[in-house]
Design a protein around this nucleic acid. Structure first.
Lengths: 230, 230
DNA sequence: TCGTTAACCTGACGGTGTCAACCTTCGGTG
DNA sequence: CACCGAAGGTTGACACCGTCAGGTTAACGA
């Protein structure tokens, strides 16, 4: 049997909120899915009766969302820690940090990013993640390498990173050859895609054109690669 | 009140299976979420008692999966229809077709691609989608523009396309500037990323190197663009 | 005509999210 | 000290869900 929680003192009712959040976070990680999470189980682990949860959360939906949002501040910290120095190098670090954050908190990431937005309006998690991308891209723009609308370009970058993260999370039984290699490749391609954005043709050209262009282009890139990796 | 379905004749019991699938498909589209779909509601719409559903499906999970799988064959048709002609042009068309397919069947796509795989092993939907990507990329490889493991390269492409599709589906209230523009950009960048794969440096270089390289590179690409768009 | 069997239905069980109503104890007030 | 308002919960119940054991009906061959 689980020990019953001692009633909080007057004015400290909000303490229970944190304890419920903690219990829900544990159970969500154990269950792996929000559907498998139960308000009753949360209450039991918090040592409290079931309806007590509703004193602090409007419903199960709100509880789950609060649990997921709790860890989201970490993303901001990761972006801040990786933002110094050269903007393009920082962009690569932030991109990796984003994917790694998603893989470190798979349940939270799935709940917040892979669900039909229950509440109307922009989901705060999505807005915050996107905001970080825009910042990173904006910094790169000041180097003069790429031109365009930072938000538009950041959308493409975000999309690529989210695709990698969400595939790895939602398809764990897929025979991924190498997670790290995929992440590296996606970050690299997405980063170069961002850098090349305003210089890319409007669409993929046919093979013969592509081959002709890439002869010179490949040599150019390879030359830079040789000098940058001793 | 809903009319009760007339009992099927002997040997035609499988007819009910199709009717249940149809009812479930309708309700899933109306509800928008699998959680909002109810076995009882499906049975009512099919004009049959609730446990009758279990005569043809192992459970709700199996029913939902069958409904989603029902539309997935369309993806194969789309890829086949877009596979002719030049491989790189076909790659661009297939990429667009993939995203459009996802947007045309948002509920099914979410259920099959954005959920913790309930059953162990590779989800058939994911395997099939990935298989098409590998085929499209393999065809491009024979043009000699890009070299490497087709599966590895296809993973990057798939990841980018899935990211775009899943973001658009899961975040409908996000202030997307222009869906079509985003799709175009993602397809373009992912396609070029695929084409450039074996020629890209191992990581993003710092700004000064990037700028120096892209001067020549941008001119090269722009020249090709001028000649390909009259 | 009759029995077999495919095709379904009835009724129930355990579990879920949620709510109205009740209780219990703290802390200030007369 | 007695009291009482209210913060901080609990009890019991409701409606709904997925699922199953067992009974019922109707079509067909013999």
């Amino acid at each position: 049997m689980t020990t019953r929680r001692v009633r909080a003192k007057r004015g400290e009712g909000a303490l229970l909120r944190e304890e419920i959040l903690g219990a829900a976070e544990e159970l969500l990680a154990e269950a792996g899915t929000e559907e498998a999470l139960t308000v009753r189980a949360v209450a039991v682990r918090a040592g409290v009766s079931t309806p007590a949860v509703y004193l602090h959360f409007a419903g199960k939906e709100a509880l789950v969302e609060a649990v997921c949002m709790r860890v989201w501040g970490e993303l901001g910290r990761l972006f801040r820690d990786n933002s110094g120095g050269d903007p393009w190098l920082a962009l690569g670090r932030c991109a990796r940090a984003y994917i790694r954050f998603a893989l470190d908190h798979p349940v939270q990431y799935r709940v917040l990013m892979m669900r039909p937005s229950g509440s109307p309006g922009v989901p705060p998690a999505a807005a915050e993640a996107f905001g970080h991308m825009v910042d990173a891209v904006s910094a790169c723009m000041e180097t003069g390498v790429v031109a365009g609308d930072p938000e538009e370009i950041a959308l493409g970058l975000w999309s690529a990173l989210h695709g990698c993260a969400s595939l790895l999370i939602a398809q764990p039984s897929f025979p991924w050859p190498d997670r790290e290699a995929l992440i590296d490749r996606v970050v690299r391609v997405a980063g170069f895609g961002t850098a090349l954005y305003s210089r890319l043709p409007r669409d993929l050209p046919p093979s013969d054109e592509l081959a002709a262009r890439f002869d010179a282009l490949g040599a150019e890139l390879a030359a830079g690669e040789d000098q940058s990796s001793p």
